[in-house]
């Protein structure tokens, strides 16, 4: 068999295959719940109900989506330039560390300190990704492996911080950091509802990234580098400098996930601040076809699956890992669907 590019794919092709991918994912999920001894459609219903069935469930889904929007944007921005940033997890933690460091120092000027926490987080995250990218542009070291390996280094660093220098003296011996000041917590978006401004910030970030990609020279350059780095260089685009800028942006966005989790939700740093938000950001970005506004939708979808699976698992006894399988299958089917919407398979 071979593949033949389709110059102008029809609407049916462009949307039909992704729709098929979603249908196939639902099918796989149903089969798995049946294997687990549960009623297939009841399981899916429980997931949907657990994610959207009540005001509390919806708020939980929105809260869970917040860090995923940030990490999803981070990955989408980087992948657009074919910069394979698999280190959003490390950048998230770098942001969280900086948030706690600035947020626990006594200043007394809240209106200055809260923005500085965010800026500090962005700088830390950007710096964390700058290393692997410089290694890539200077020495040709593959960034996939370096960013992946650095996730483990960062997690151990955080583990040391919360047991040592940043440890909460009032924490009864638990490995967690001193909490940031009450005044320095992100306010709630609506009084009385458990949803902090991190979510609003994530939406703003998505719009800004979209504007950047659609309207600025940098956005154009990033796209050009991603499509064909050699041609971009030939056309006079400074490829390495575009890659560095992309890295700073991507690392900074991922770090905001850490900032918003600490300043908006938890108030302190622990080793398990992120249950893999950095890695899940890759799925979010791919499901969104790397589109910044799509990232918001995909993050809500993915967060809904996780929140829904938690409550489904309690009710139906199907292991929560069903959610991870579902997302992995969705990712693989979606990549395949995208391929098939642009190429025709020719058998001969």
């Amino acid at each position: 068999m071979r593949l033949e590019a389709i110059p102008n794919p029809s609407h049916l092709r462009r949307y039909g295959f992704p729709a098929l991918a979603i249908a196939a994912t639902v099918l796989v999920a149903s089969v798995l719940s049946w294997v687990a001894g549960a009623e297939p459609f009841a399981t899916l219903g429980l997931i949907v109900k657990g994610a959207t069935g009540s005001r509390l469930a919806i708020l939980e889904t929105l809260n869970r989506a917040t860090p995923l929007i940030f990490t999803g944007l981070a990955v989408a921005v980087a992948f657009r330039a074919k910069l394979w940033n698999i280190g959003a997890e490390a950048q998230l933690y770098a942001g969280a560390v900086m948030t706690v460091v600035i947020g626990t120092s006594a200043w007394g000027v809240v209106w200055l300190q809260l923005p500085l926490m965010a800026l500090g987080a962005v700088a830390a995250g950007a710096l964390v990704l700058l290393g692997p990218v410089l290694l890539k542009t200077r020495f040709g070291v593959d960034e996939v492996v370096t960013t992946l390996l650095f996730n483990f280094v960062m997690l151990l660093f955080v583990s040391w911080l919360v047991e040592g220098p940043l440890k909460d003296p009032m924490g009864m011996g638990w490995p967690k950091s001193t909490p940031i000041d009450r005044d320095l917590r992100l306010p709630r978006m609506v009084e009385g509802l458990r949803l902090h401004w991190g979510f609003g910030l994530a939406l703003i970030a998505a719009v800004l990234v979209w504007l950047m990609q659609a309207r600025t020279v940098l956005g154009y350059e990033i796209r050009a580098v991603g499509q064909n780095a050699r041609a971009a260089r030939f056309a006079g685009i400074p490829v390495n400098s575009v890659l560095v800028k992309t890295a700073l942006l991507s690392g900074g966005l991922a770090a905001l996930a850490g900032f918003s989790e600490v300043a908006g939700l938890k108030g302190h740093l622990t080793r398990d601040l992120s249950p893999g938000f950095g890695y899940t950001g890759i799925i979010v970005a791919m499901l969104a076809l790397l589109h910044p506004l799509g990232v918001v939708v995909a993050a809500l979808f993915v967060a809904g699956i996780f929140v829904g699976a938690d409550s489904m698992s309690r009710a139906a006894g199907v292991p929560t890992y069903l959610a991870d399988i579902l997302l992995a299958v969705a990712l693989l089917f979606m990549v395949l669907a995208l391929g098939l919407s642009r190429y025709r398979v020719v058998w001969k």
Binding site: L32, V35, M286, P319, Y321, D324, L327
Partner: peptide, 27 residues
């Protein structure tokens, strides 16, 4: 044969295989 991104497919396989193993273990 489909020539899809080796990065994305690989990471997807890692997620799928890990989750499937954990799911099966719990089950």
């Amino acid at each position: 044969p489909f020539g899809l991104s080796q990065h994305v497919v690989g990471l997807g396989i890692t997620l799928l295989a890990t989750a499937t193993a954990y799911f099966a273990y719990r089950l």
